[in-house]
């Protein structure tokens, strides 16, 4: 297909791509970048003026060079992909189980009476307390790591799905009753839409928890391909540039997940003016 056929006929007056880019850059809110730039400047200064010994603080240039080296002849891309793979599988498993169990808890009050307190108790246990147990059950390799990430993603999703489905305002319940809604129509038209913002909050938290758990799993369990392994490597071999690079990569992925969650939420809840 030629490029021409993609352009709709109405879009004749397309602005010049460069001027469009300039306008977009102008429209960008650069204020959030200020503190970021300040940190970079401080970093440069600390290195240039030897405020910190170079052994503990690499130059920003060294980190960029390390990235270049890693991309061309190192393993960091594979490590990043491995870490992301683990993270996404764990997120999917934990999220799916959390959503299913949360839905059951929210829809059947009988089930919630039996299972609910156990779920709440499980939530009270500190996340990292599960690491030794899971490594005994599933081993320290990939399966153990994914199990741990799943537990991390499961917790906020199960709680928020459950809560979202149960906390329907009394006024909506009364409306559903006055319109003689069947149970299914009540769930479909009232309970689920009412729960969506809360479920999204859980999903958002799950993204962050699962990412933390991914770092934790890769640090605490066996070394395997992955960013966590590179952190261990960096600290043991005292490759300070590698340490910095890996931490920055962790931060970038975390940022990406965060904005992804916010955008998805806005897309789904167009009625939500909150």
């Amino acid at each position: 297909m030629s490029a021409d056929s993609i352009i709709p006929p109405r879009a004749v007056a397309v602005p010049h791509p460069v001027s469009a880019l300039v306008r977009r850059i102008r429209a960008l809110d650069w204020r959030p970048l200020l503190s970021f730039a300040a940190i970079i400047a401080l970093w440069f200064a600390a290195y240039e003026f030897n405020w910190v010994r170079a052994k503990f603080l690499p130059s920003p240039v060294a980190v960029v060079e390390r990235l270049w080296f890693e991309i061309h002849s190192g393993t960091i891309v594979t490590d990043l992909l491995e870490t992301l793979r683990r993270n996404i599988i764990g997120l999917a498993i934990g999220g799916f189980i959390g959503l299913a169990l949360g839905a059951l808890l929210g829809i059947s009050s009988g089930f919630a009476k039996i299972v609910g307190p156990t779920v709440l108790a499980q939530r009270q246990t500190a996340l990292f307390a599960w690491v030794p147990l899971l490594s005994v059950w599933f081993g320290g390799a990939d399966v153990g790591k994914i199990a741990f990430i799943s537990v991390a993603a499961f917790q906020p999703i199960v709680i928020n799905t459950w809560r979202g489905l149960t906390l329907v305002p009394k006024t909506y319940k009364e409306l559903a009753e006055s319109l003689s809604f069947t149970r299914w129509d009540y769930v479909r038209l009232v309970a689920i839409p009412n729960a969506l913002p809360t479920i999204f909050t859980g999903f958002h938290a799950a993204l962050i928890y699962a990412w933390l758990a991914t770092v934790g799993a890769e640090l605490f369990l066996n070394i395997a391909p992955g960013l966590g392994g590179r952190l261990t490597e960096g600290s043991q071999l005292f490759e300070i540039d590698l340490l910095f690079l890996t931490i920055i990569l962790f931060g970038i992925v975390g940022l990406f997940y965060n904005s992804l969650a916010e955008r998805t939420e806005g897309l789904f809840l167009k009625w939500n003016s909150r």
């Binding site: 409306l175 006055s178 319109l179 003689s180 038209l189 839409p193 009412n194 809840l269 009625w271 939500n272």
Partner: peptide, 28 residues
């Protein structure tokens, strides 16, 4: 119990915020 022969308008509109105006009317 409630039935289709009786309908109520509450003091607050009680429209479901996730449905459009026509969607809300359609729930009846």
């Amino acid at each position: 119990g409630p039935g289709p022969d009786r309908a109520i308008v509450f003091q607050e509109h009680r429209l479901l915020p996730w449905l459009t105006a026509e969607g809300n009317v359609g729930t009846a």
